[in-house]
Design a protein around this nucleic acid. Structure first.
Lengths: 144, 144
DNA sequence: TTAGATGCAAACGATTTGCGCGGAA
DNA sequence: TTCCGCGCAAATCGTTTGCATCTAA
């Protein structure tokens, strides 16, 4: 809890550097991110009990979009209609998703493409490289 | 050309096995997939010059959805609003995408997570495992 | 003949945007 | 004070679905 308030201030500093103001909505959204161990949709952020200020969906959208532009937040596709987001400062995670029920498991593996990323960056000239790795399958429950 | 008509028949066979009828719309959509080297959105399929029969968007949607369920087609998220699809029979591809202009490059690399996939399958009990790997960054053009 | 496929049109849901007010710098 | 951020509401866009008709099997 103290830890997360430390993180919160650090995050707000990053946001300020990126040109965002220290508004209540921003603080509230960041807290929601810090309180969650899973990627969240915009709706989930707006409906989270951790959200201590009411935020309009448009506000959440604009905030998270800007956070993503400034690489404070990472976007994750999954195969759901809504995009998911998580803090980039958290350790990079790869996911295992059930095609049928949509459950999301966080994989406890060393990410296997770290060095590949550097190689691709240098070969392609791309900057700020990042990656997304997900496994899709049918989970045990959905196999019956 | 002859090659792709061979593929087309083989694909139609797979579809028939999966319970789909050999309709003109199905044939047309499969041809579009075969003619493209990049993943396509439903819109792109419907608007493709390779599509030799007019198909309603709803038809394309239902066809591709069914093809995906039967694992004849693979869905790819990218970070665009619309989902992309490609034939699963083509070799598995990983992608390099520009966050700014959205350009998609196909990575010419041996996929680095094949064996990891098997390991995850056995550890998790998931069936029909598949994965999606994309790299995101800013391309050379967009860096200026 | 008949179950499945298609077109049309309407519903849906997740963004995405315009605008006028309010609050951070 | 000034400009950015916010809520509200409307527009967009990519699906997604209901229904009557058509067609492959």
């Amino acid at each position: 809890m103290h830890q997360s308030s430390v993180n919160l201030e650090a995050l707000l500093d990053s946001c300020a550097e990126a040109g965002l103001r220290r508004t209540n909505a921003l603080r509230a959204c960041l807290k929601v991110f810090l309180a969650s161990d899973q990627p969240l949709t915009l709706q989930e952020i707006g409906a989270s009990p951790e959200l201590d200020v009411d935020c309009d969906p448009a506000t959440v959208y604009r905030l998270v979009t800007r956070l993503e532009e400034h690489r404070i937040v990472r976007r994750i596709g999954f195969h759901s209609r809504a995009a998911h987001y998580c803090l980039r400062e958290s350790a990079h995670q790869d996911y295992l998703i059930c095609r049928d029920c949509g459950s999301v498991e966080i994989l406890d593996i060393a990410c296997p493409v770290e060095h590949l990323e550097k190689q691709i960056a240098s070969e392609s000239g791309f900057k700020d490289l990042d990656h997304e790795l997900e496994f899709y399958g049918r989970c045990v429950t959905c196999q019956s």
